[in-house]
């Protein structure tokens, strides 16, 4: 049996971390697009579109992500598509992220006082013009901290994709543990790597939030 130095362990974990980062980015960007579509549908005049958006959001927020991963993984193979784990992982994470971001952003749009809508209405602006020039610029500002904050959840959520066999940091940890029999060291380092990815995001979300609050108090 080959012996593993600590450096071997860390190096292999870091290699796998690339996939955690890549999957996080894909989920976050794709989820952002999904969220925008869901948000527009959710706030649109069309009742069917609104219903569909609510259904989508509640479905993905109201069930465990692990189940969603399994259902994508096994569900797609059921209709005859042979899905590699990375595809099921990406799809499920994108839709899951989209559902949460859509709700976060809707909260930001709704936080804009009614007076802003009324004033812009009285100035003869259309719904789209109000959104574009009055509501979104203000909503975007307050959306940044919670959006950055949610990115932490996305990074952590990628760990679940190891269970359907996508090899990222968590799966690699299990594989390395099986080879080295050093679970304490391996999972400890894995935790530290996740922490190194997530903590800066958490911290900047907090700082942005605080900055926003200070700006608000000066109003």
């Amino acid at each position: 049996m080959t012996t593993f130095t600590t450096w071997d362990i860390v190096r292999n974990l870091l290699l796998a971390t690339q996939w955690t980062i890549l999957l996080s980015l894909v989920a976050f960007v794709g989820g952002g697009v999904a969220a925008l579509l869901a948000l527009l549908a959710r706030t649109s005049q069309n009742r069917a579109a609104r219903r569909l958006a609510v259904f989508y959001i509640e479905l993905f927020q109201g069930t465990p992500l692990l189940m969603q991963l399994f259902l994508f993984f096994f569900g797609l193979s059921l209709v005859g598509v042979n899905v590699p784990p990375w595809l099921a992982a990406a799809l499920a994470l994108i839709l899951w992220t989209g559902a949460f971001l859509a709700e976060i952003w809707r909260g930001c749009v709704e936080a804009i006082p009614r007076g802003q809508w009324e004033a812009s209405s009285s100035l003869a602006m259309s719904y789209f013009e109000q959104m574009r020039h009055v509501v979104l610029p203000q909503a975007l500002r307050i959306a940044v901290p919670p959006t950055v904050g949610f990115s932490v959840q996305v990074v952590k959520a990628t760990a679940l994709t190891s269970i359907i066999g996508f090899v990222e940091l968590s799966k690699a940890s299990t594989m390395i543990t099986n080879a080295t029999f050093q679970p304490f060291v391996v999972y400890g380092f894995a935790a530290l790597i996740y922490f190194a990815l997530c903590w800066p995001l958490s911290k900047s979300s907090q700082l942005l939030e605080r900055k926003l609050n200070v700006a608000h108090r000066n109003h």
């Binding site: 006082p113 007076g115 009324e118 004033a119 009285s122 602006m125 013009e129 203000q138």
Partner: peptide
């Protein structure tokens, strides 16, 4: 219409508040 609570757009300067609707609408 003028409102009790002013309802100026907080992300725009006074000038921009006045300019917005003529430009957009």
């Amino acid at each position: 219409m003028i409102f009790q609570g002013f309802n100026l757009f907080p992300h725009l300067t006074a000038g921009r508040n006045v300019m917005l609707s003529p430009m957009v609408v």
